[in-house]
Design a protein around this nucleic acid. Structure first.
Lengths: 265, 265
DNA sequence: CCCGCTTTCCCACAATATGAAAAAAGCTGG
DNA sequence: CCAGCTTTTTTCATATTGTGGGAAAGCGGG
């Protein structure tokens, strides 16, 4: 894609800052990391800060992500309509099951935690808090989405994510392929302590008419709280909610996922 | 600021899309709204979509905000440390009071809802859900921050926000000045149905050592649930939590607010 | 107080972004 | 199903814009 050099560089800087720690980055760090001249980094970072996308620490002369992202991010999620639609469902499920309820949505090659309701016990999850993301394929909430995408898309996603799988304890493409076969056969995703010691998860896909699977609704709990019998009753419960949600989804306002394969560097 | 034309234009496009409805905008809309040529809009929007900042609806050929904002926004908020620090506090307050608990943070000329815990009754608030924002000065959570900023900053903020105050039912600069005088005198902000019919709110400021007031902790409830006596006990409760939070705030990792007056167009 | 390191500003140069126009792709209504 | 319209995408010559070296100004540590 030509004619957007400055924009690409600016976004690269944003990503750098996003990946940096809480202390942020100084101009010289940006310059060192990108190979761009100091003046260019300064100019771009100052402009981004002027727009609120970066926050500038005047005393330490360092840049962090601006809260503008938070504001726009909330709107982006709201636009999809899924969050609002599912809010009462999450509350209900959390109250009824005492487990942690998770709403995940596909975004490019990842699945993003759109909303979460903690149960009695606050369990650790891969995505962490709201807004967290995992590569598609890791964890039940993520597999419940991946398993029901078109075969060529699945291939593209797994290929793209392969290097990232390694960063998650003992994951690899073959394992994930087997897992999603199982998910497809059963109709729901189940993990029993395989991702995080002692934490179990169940998830069912959410389909938008005409768009296929776009999200998943899941539960997280301690493995000690989940036996075979409970799996069935919970899956049943989730599926009933899923059907209700699917009936109300407005595919037109649903944020479509970018085509697999497109990702700028 | 020179040398960032493309970047400024790109951000202008992002803002347009952000302000557009759930259906998003087509290239021709972007062109019409900005006066830029269609080709330029197309090139920039496609680049932004490639980076995930915009989501492209392939069938309708329209752009919406991308979930990338959601992901980065969550990180931006997490970085401040305030959200994590206050999470248990919010949960505790919600459980104890049965009211809605709100954590607001300053961002430029606005206050942003960083976290929220709904009580027994789901009340309407100005900021709406998490990520929502109001101009500084409107509503108790916002006034609890504004009231304790430096006088010249207050002036700059009110001046900047004056046109926006009009958009909120019966607000104006004079009213807000009086309100923040009261807040300063009492040490907390109180609204009794003045903003939204039947909804009352209380908020206390949160100070970061060396940075002054950066956020506020507040409660929302029905006016019928709030009498003079309860105001005092709730304010007391909030202030105790505020002291505890303030003791744990790490000002170094706190996102500093951009200097008032800086805002690119 | 001085020295080294960062940040910020300045400016000539050329690479980059620009928009007109053409081509392609969708829609619409008959 | 086609003709005519609108909207999107691509192409390309042009000059505007972004670039990075270097100088100036700030900071901070010793």
């Amino acid at each position: 894609m030509a004619g957007t050099q400055l924009l690409d560089r600016a976004i690269a800087l944003l990503r750098l800052v996003a990946d940096a720690g809480a202390n942020g980055l100084a101009v010289r760090d940006l310059s060192a990391a990108t190979g761009l001249s100091v003046s260019t980094c300064h100019r771009v970072a100052a402009a981004l800060a002027g727009h609120g996308l970066l926050a500038r620490d005047e005393s330490a002369r360092r840049y962090r992500l601006g809260l503008e992202f938070f504001v726009l991010g909330a709107r982006a999620a709201e636009r999809t309509g899924l969050g609002q639609l599912c809010r009462p469902v999450l509350t209900r499920l959390a109250a009824e099951t005492d487990d942690t309820v998770l709403l995940m949505m596909r975004h490019n090659f990842e699945s993003v935690c759109i909303d979460r309701r903690d149960g009695r016990i606050i369990i650790q999850t891969l995505t962490g808090a709201i807004g967290g993301s995992v590569p598609l394929g890791v964890g039940p909430g993520s597999q419940a989405i991946l398993a029901f995408l078109a075969a060529d898309e699945v291939d593209a996603i797994i290929a793209h994510n392969t290097p990232r799988y390694a960063t998650v304890q003992g994951q690899n493409p073959a394992l994930i392929r087997t897992a999603i076969e199982d998910v497809r056969a059963r109709g729901y995703a189940l993990d029993y302590g395989g991702i995080i010691q002692g934490v179990a998860g169940i998830a069912v896909p959410l389909r938008a008419p005409g768009l296929g699977v776009v999200a998943s609704l899941g539960l997280g709990m301690l493995t000690s709280q989940l036996d075979d019998e409970r799996v069935h009753s919970l899956v049943d419960r989730l599926k009933r909610e899923a059907v209700r949600i699917e009936a109300e989804i407005n595919p037109l306002s649903l944020l479509p996922v970018n085509a697999a394969g497109k990702q700028a560097g």
